[in-house]
């Protein structure tokens, strides 16, 4: 589902501030592709063991590698650099502000291998870089629907245009909940488990209301009315009353809808003039919250009912 390859350039431009990255050389190789969402310490490869070398990963040089290289004679060191850069590595990053020597930079320039450095200590860098890479590699998609945070429950509201989505979202915002995305929600799978939604940066904090136009929600309702991203916990589909044939009257079973392969709780709410949609969505969110805590009112009621009937049969 990733549309574009994860290039060193994307990694560098997207995370240079957080990882304190600086490009030292080999800029021509910035289009190289990172093929695995993790890093590798090339110590063993530098020492000559290249039978198993994770060359598809970002190569991280720390104290261990740099100190080892210093023990070698210059010609030997040059050979190791040439050997290292002859592999199709994405890039090499020096941590702790360790500086690569001139031979290293020259050899990298010949093969167009980007060389970067970071001021972070190696362990910290590896942790942050792995997280950053995982995020870059996370499956993504766009979902049609608006995302609202209701008491910590992320609700994706779907429905055909004109069904009353914007009105209900507006009412939810007025009740103090926050808008994450209007109409189009960008979703990303985090840790292979959570579906996290956000809006496109371009349209963030804005929504369209028919008859009024585009409004800036944050400017109108304040900072609390917007939120940048939220895990999706519930999908609510608004549907015209007569289109919903088989409406769930009990809510005993949980329906699901798959987003990025993860089944999310799904409710279909039939729409009819006079129904307070915002209130219904709010209740759906709170209901989901209770359910997640282990409550199922329909089932609990039914259990009491069954117990009572069993008691009556026994003549109690």
């Amino acid at each position: 589902m990733n549309r574009d390859a994860i290039t060193v350039e994307r990694f560098y431009t997207g995370h240079s501030a957080r990882l304190d990255l600086k490009l030292l050389g080999g800029a021509a190789g910035l289009k190289r592709v990172i093929r695995e969402p993790t890093v590798n310490r090339p110590g063993l490869a530098l020492a000559g063991h290249t039978k198993y070398f994770a060359r598809k990963r970002v190569q991280v040089m720390g104290h261990a590698e740099v100190t080892y290289l210093k023990t070698l004679r210059r010609e030997e060191r040059q050979q190791r650099y040439e050997m290292l850069f002859s592999y199709k590595l994405p890039c090499v990053i020096f941590c702790r502000d360790l500086a690569p020597d001139r031979d290293c930079l020259r050899a990298a320039e010949v093969k167009d291998v980007p060389i970067l450095k970071s001021s972070l200590i190696t362990m910290k860098f590896i942790n942050l870089a792995t997280l950053a890479l995982e995020q870059l590699f996370a499956p993504r998609a766009s979902e049609m629907g608006s995302l609202v945070d209701i008491h910590g429950v992320g609700v994706l509201i779907r429905g055909d245009s004109g069904i009353g989505k914007s009105e209900s979202i507006l009412a939810l915002i007025e009740r103090g909940y926050s808008l994450v995305a209007d109409d189009m929600t960008k979703v990303m799978l985090v840790d292979g488990r959570d579906v996290v939604g956000t809006s496109s940066e371009l349209t963030r904090n804005h929504m369209e209301i028919r008859g009024i136009g585009i409004v800036n929600v944050a400017a109108m309702f304040g900072a609390k009315s917007v939120r940048q991203e939220k895990r999706i916990d519930l999908v609510v589909t608004l549907k015209a009353w007569d289109e919903v044939k088989d409406v769930d009257r009990l809510g005993m079973e949980e329906a699901h809808m798959e987003i990025l392969g993860i089944p999310l709780p799904h409710m279909t709410i039939p729409v009819r003039p006079g129904r307070d949609l915002a209130r219904l969505i709010e209740v759906a969110a709170l209901h989901t919250k209770l359910r997640r805590a282990g409550h199922n009112p329909a089932r609990e009621l039914n259990e009491r009912l069954v117990a009572q009937m069993a008691g009556a049969k026994r003549g109690l």
Binding site: M144, S161, D183, M184, L202, T203, H206, M207, I214
Partner: peptide, 18 residues
């Protein structure tokens, strides 16, 4: 556009395509 699919009836969607 570039693998990003939006609803043609949504103005926010169209603007998002840039």
């Amino acid at each position: 556009k570039d693998g990003e699919k939006i609803n043609g009836k949504s103005i926010m969607g169209l603007l998002m395509l840039a």
